[in-house]
Design a protein around this nucleic acid. Structure first.
Lengths: 140, 140
DNA sequence: CCGCATCCCTATAGATACTG
DNA sequence: CAGTATCTATAGGGATGCGG
């Protein structure tokens, strides 16, 4: 039942079909920068995603291979994390941050980080990617 | 009537509220890389946007300041073009292209261009931006 | 004919209540 | 806590209308 839309083979369109909705990038943000892992974590984000949408997005992001679910451990809490394909969205996400910073007022603590990003974009991305890759197999 | 949602002040969210739907980035792509300008041009794109959606997106993209409409010239054809805010989306758009290239089969002619992009990302973006800025006040 | 606006209808998004 | 069920709202497709 994996949706087989493919309005066109344009890369922009293929990207939109993978994560082009109002919520997917927020989940990716949470996984990428906020250290969130569980269904409950995502629900707590300030945008207040509703439970059915969250479940649907988690499913579709798994279907397109951007995230994977780690089988629920002892405590019964299932965790999600980014695949390499998801981690590869980092440069794009950083550009989204930088575009927004240029055209909207954004929270000060984000500004602070973005100053570092601008100083060494590739370095920041590499360090963040390493951190995400190592968390692929952590326990707690 | 400019929508004042603002689910949060997170930059990712602010971006999503500006262009986070299934169509806006395709219009921006057409303006940025395909040299398209008119309503009819956009309709001809392979994704086959319908007329009411196109009109709605052109309106919302103007409201958020990503595009502007140039008053219809002699022949009665209104043109649109990117504002500086829209042109500033170039680095992000390039990263979208690069991400897709890495994870999906894409058309060969796009591959060719992306090879150049990877060789000199900043240079490519600067050249493209210059071209877009100069087209702000062209006639034909 | 071109650039939209409108209407109708269907499909999907999304809020809320509820269940294993 | 992690989802499903149900219901409503909005996005979107397609045809059509209408002014320039």
């Amino acid at each position: 039942m994996t949706k087989q839309t493919n309005r066109s083979d344009c890369p922009i369109n293929l990207s939109l079909e993978a994560w082009g909705d109002k919520w997917s990038l927020l989940i990716i943000r949470d996984l990428m920068f906020e250290g969130k892992r569980t269904y409950g974590d995502f629900l707590k984000s300030p945008e207040k995603i509703s439970t059915n949408i969250l479940a649907a997005r988690l499913k579709s992001l798994q279907e397109v291979g951007i995230i994977v679910a780690s089988g629920s451990p002892d405590r019964g809490t299932k965790g999600y994390h980014l695949t390499q394909k998801g981690i590869d969205m980092l440069p794009m996400m950083l550009e989204v941050y930088l575009w927004t910073e240029k055209h909207y007022p954004i929270p000060e603590h984000v500004q602070t980080i973005l100053t570092k990003v601008k100083a060494d974009k590739a370095g920041f991305a590499a360090a963040a990617a390493l951190r995400l890759q190592s968390s692929d197999n952590d326990a707690s």
